[in-house]
Amino acid sequence: MAGMMYLLIAVIAEVVGTTALKSSNGFSNLFPSIIVVVSYVLSFFLLGMSLKTIPLGIGYALWSGIGTALTIIIGVVVWKEAMSLASVLGVLLILSGVVILNMNKVGIG
């Protein structure tokens, strides 16, 4: 259970860092750049902690998949980025993969 909490916080930190990356304007804005570095360090640290109890493939797939889906949603909501039908389908496939991996982890399927 602690591993999943570490993983959840790692995903949130990664999404915060990636969102700040856009604001950093190529690392030319100091405050967002600091947020990027701190968030990514925290995210990788917590991902590493989560991998003590979660298998590598599952942990990394969940971290990257959920992070990608949340980052896309933030891009649309915060940055008003356009989302095509292909983008929507891609996010749904990522989320489907995350669900399938979690079902496998708990012994369903």
Results as ranks from 00 to 15, higher is better:
P32I: 02
S23M: 14
F27D: 09
K105Y: 14
I108F: 13
L51H: 04
L70Q: 03
P55C: 08
L21E: 08
L93M: 15
L42A: 15
G107P: 09
G67L: 04
V38C: 10
V76L: 09
I35V: 15
G65P: 07
L62I: 14
S87H: 14
M1V: 09
L47C: 11
I9R: 05
N104T: 08
L93E: 09
G75E: 02
I94A: 07
L85C: 05
W63Q: 05
G65D: 09
L93K: 02
F31M: 15
S33V: 07
G75S: 08
A61T: 12
M83R: 03
V91P: 02
V16D: 03
L30K: 08
L70W: 00
K52E: 15
I73M: 13
V106T: 11
G90F: 13
G65Y: 06
F45D: 08
A10G: 06
L30S: 08
S24W: 01
A69W: 01
A20M: 09
T71A: 15
M5W: 15
I74P: 00
S96D: 07
S23H: 11
L95M: 14
I100C: 11
G109Q: 11
L95A: 05
A13E: 08
G90N: 07
A20W: 00
N29R: 14
G75N: 05
N102F: 09
P32N: 09
N25I: 00
G75Y: 03
I58R: 05
E81G: 09
G75C: 07
I35Y: 02
L21C: 08
L95I: 12
G3S: 13
G109R: 13
P32C: 06
G65V: 07
L62H: 01
S96C: 13
Y40T: 03
P32V: 03
K80E: 14
K22D: 02
I9A: 14
M83W: 03
S24N: 05
A82R: 11
T19F: 07
A86L: 13
S87E: 11
L46R: 00
L47R: 07
S84H: 05
A2V: 12
I66E: 09
M5D: 09
V36D: 00
V77Q: 10
A61E: 10
S24T: 01
L8P: 01
V11C: 10
G17M: 05
M49S: 13
I58C: 09
V78E: 14
M4R: 00
K52G: 12
E14V: 05
K105E: 15
G59H: 02
F31G: 03
V78L: 15
L42P: 00
V88C: 10
G59K: 01
L70Y: 01
V78K: 12
A13Q: 02
I9W: 08
S87A: 14
S43F: 04
I35L: 13
I74V: 14
F45R: 01
S43R: 02
N29Y: 02
K80V: 03
S33D: 11
I66N: 04
S23K: 12
M83G: 12
N29H: 11
M49D: 06
A2N: 13
V36R: 00
I58K: 06
